Amino acid sequence: MAAASQLTTIFQTFRPNAFSCSNNNNVKIPAIPNLKKQILGVAAGILAASAVAAAAPLEADATRIEYYATVSEPSCELNFVKSGLGYCDVVVGSGEEVPFAQLINVHYTARFADGIVFDSTYKRARPLTMRLGMGKVIKGLDQGILGGGGVPPMQVGGKRKLYIPPNLAYGPEPAGCFSGDCNIPANATLVYDVNFVEIYSGNRKL
Score class of each variant (00 low, 15 high):
Lys28Glu: 12
Lys28Gln: 12
Ile29Gly: 01
Ile29Asn: 01
Ile29Met: 02
Ile29Val: 08
Ile29Ala: 01
Ile29Trp: 00
Pro30Gln: 13
Ala31Leu: 09
Ala31Val: 07
Ala31Trp: 06
Ala31Lys: 05
Ile32Pro: 01
Ile32Tyr: 03
Ile32Glu: 09
Ile32Gln: 11
Pro33Lys: 03
Pro33Gly: 04
Pro33Ala: 09
Pro33Met: 04
Pro33Glu: 09
Pro33Leu: 06
Asn34Trp: 00
Asn34Ile: 02
Asn34Val: 02
Asn34Met: 02
Asn34Glu: 02
Asn34His: 05
Asn34Phe: 04
Leu35Trp: 09
Lys36Thr: 03
Lys36Val: 02
Lys36Cys: 04
Lys36His: 04
Lys37Phe: 04
Lys37Cys: 03
Lys37Ala: 07
Lys37Leu: 04
Lys37Tyr: 03
Gln38Asp: 10
Gln38Trp: 05
Gln38Met: 14
Ile39Val: 08
Ile39Asn: 00
Leu40Met: 13
Leu40Tyr: 14
Leu40Gly: 13
Leu40Ala: 14
Leu40Trp: 11
Gly41Val: 10
Gly41Ser: 15
Gly41Glu: 11
Gly41Cys: 12
Val42Asp: 00
Ala43Cys: 11
Ala44Ser: 09
Ala44Thr: 06
Ala44Asn: 04
Gly45Gln: 01
Gly45Ala: 00
Ile46Glu: 08
Ile46Gln: 07
Ile46Trp: 04
Leu47Gly: 06
Leu47Gln: 10
Ala48Pro: 01
Ala49Thr: 05
Ala49Gln: 06
Ala49Tyr: 02
Ala49Arg: 02
Ala49Lys: 05
Ala49Asp: 03
Ala49Glu: 05
Ser50Gly: 10
Ser50His: 08
Ser50Lys: 11
Ser50Phe: 07
Ser50Gln: 13
Ala51Leu: 03
Ala51Arg: 02
Ala51Phe: 02
Ala51Val: 05
Val52Ala: 14
Val52Pro: 01
Val52Gly: 05
Ala53Gly: 05
Ala53Asn: 04
Ala54Ile: 05
Ala55Thr: 09
Ala56Cys: 04
Ala56Met: 09
Ala56Glu: 10
Ala56Arg: 04
Ala56Phe: 05
Pro57Met: 13
Pro57Ala: 14
Pro57Gln: 12
Pro57Cys: 09
Pro57Val: 14
Leu58Glu: 07
Leu58Cys: 06
Leu58Gly: 08
Leu58Ile: 06
Leu58Met: 10
Leu58Thr: 08
Glu59Asn: 11
Glu59Tyr: 10
Glu59Thr: 07
Ala60Asp: 06
Ala60Trp: 05
Asp61Arg: 12
Asp61Ile: 12
Ala62His: 11
Ala62Phe: 08
Ala62Lys: 15
Thr63Phe: 12
Thr63Ser: 12
Thr63Leu: 13
Thr63Gln: 12
Arg64Val: 14
Arg64Ser: 14
Arg64Phe: 13
Ile65Glu: 07
Glu66His: 15
Glu66Ala: 15
Tyr67Trp: 15
Tyr67Gln: 15
Tyr67Cys: 13
Tyr68Lys: 15
Tyr68Glu: 15
Tyr68Thr: 14
Tyr68Ala: 15
Tyr68Gln: 15
Ala69Glu: 02
Ala69Val: 01
Ala69Asn: 01
Ala69Gln: 03
Ala69Pro: 00
Ala69Leu: 02
Ala69Lys: 00
Thr70Glu: 10
Thr70Val: 08
Thr70Tyr: 06
Thr70Ile: 10
Thr70Ser: 12
